[in-house]
């Protein structure tokens, strides 16, 4: 655009000069491009663009939108929340009563998986990891006594036998063939890899999931305020989790994103005991002076709400 205008202006100047009888030689493109003005403009533009990019990228440092790491267990939200329609808060039960929506403990998994021992996608490969973590023997349907003091060899014996037996049952074979042996070895290696790391040498004990949604330490966020009081759907911030095979961070979790939502979102004010003491807003709504109350109206933009 600017180039076009410059070209038009120079053409007009040339015509004006020609009318007055002067002869001005037309500048070649190379001359124009290497002229002082153009070079100054280009350097200026480069500095502005560079600074703009630097600031933008620096602001985004530490943000993880779209972060979808590999988890120790290939847990699929699509299978659990999508196909089987398990409520989010059945497993993430602390979302309604705590600031954290914590990752469910292994015993929550066992509520269902004490009975469901073969996964729909991965068979015994992923579910055996839960059993190895908590110490449940799926063959006898009993928790193993003194599991914490068992050696790795003892644990390996229990679960490789279970994986092998399941393989034989599914394939209707009497003995483990080569493929079966390979499968058992591979699944056991995977279980060991998932449940141990440099800090945690034992198979027994908690599953160390990779945390996806991280807020900086100087931000206070409360799940129960949004889920129980605000009656928000989990999907508002977390996206269509029920369609995700691998869990992914949908929102930028940036301050601008929070603030924007607080400006736009209408508070569910009616029949909400939590907001009963906002009498002026209730009166204004009843009198028809006000059609909605946003989060910003009740102090959702105040710094100290989240940073204190």
């Amino acid at each position: 655009m600017a180039l076009l205008l410059t070209k038009i202006i120079s053409n007009l100047n040339q015509i004006a000069a020609a009318r007055e009888g002067e002869h001005v030689p037309a500048k070649s493109i190379a001359q124009i491009l290497t002229s002082k003005g153009v070079i100054t403009f280009l350097i200026f533009a480069a500095i502005i663009l560079g600074a703009y990019t630097t600031v933008n990228k620096a602001t985004e440092l530490g943000r993880q939108e779209g972060y979808a790491p590999d988890q120790p267990i290939k847990f699929s939200h699509a299978t659990h929340a999508g196909v089987n329609k398990i409520d989010c808060q059945y497993c993430h039960d602390s979302a309604r009563r705590s600031k954290h929506s914590s990752i469910p403990s292994t015993n929550t998994c066992m509520n269902c998986h004490a009975a469901i021992k073969n996964g729909s996608t991965y068979g015994t490969a992923e579910l055996t990891k839960i059993y190895a973590s908590i110490g449940y023997d799926p063959a006898t349907n009993k928790y193993i006594e003194n599991y914490d003091s068992k050696t790795e060899e003892e644990i390996k014996a229990i679960y490789t036998k279970w994986i092998g037996d399941e393989y034989k049952r599914v394939k209707e074979k009497a003995d483990l063939d080569d493929e079966g042996v390979r499968l058992v070895t591979q699944q056991w290696a995977d279980i060991k890899k998932s449940l141990t790391n440099e800090q945690k040498k034992k198979i027994q004990g908690p599953i160390e999931w990779v945390r996806i949604h991280n807020l900086p330490d100087h931000v206070y966020f409360n799940h129960s305020q949004h889920v129980t009081v605000g009656k928000l759907e989990c999907q508002t911030c977390h996206g269509k989790v029920e369609e995700m095979d691998v869990m992914k961070q949908m929102s930028p979790l940036s301050m601008g994103w929070c603030i924007n939502c607080h400006r736009q979102t209408e508070v569910k004010f009616k029949d909400n005991a939590y907001y009963a003491n906002y009498t002026r807003y209730h009166e204004e709504m009843a009198a028809g002076k006000r059609d909605k109350v946003t989060v910003a109206d009740i102090g959702g933009l105040e710094c100290q709400k989240c940073h204190y």
Binding site: S98, H100, S105, T106, N107, T108, P206, I207, V210, R211
Partner: peptide
């Protein structure tokens, strides 16, 4: 190195005591 975000772990209980809600 500065652009790399460290992997953070979330470690739940194996058997969560009934009376404990993380964060409360």
């Amino acid at each position: 190195a500065g652009c790399d975000i460290p992997v953070k772990r979330a470690i739940p209980y194996v058997i969560k005591p009934d009376q404990i809600v993380p964060g409360v």
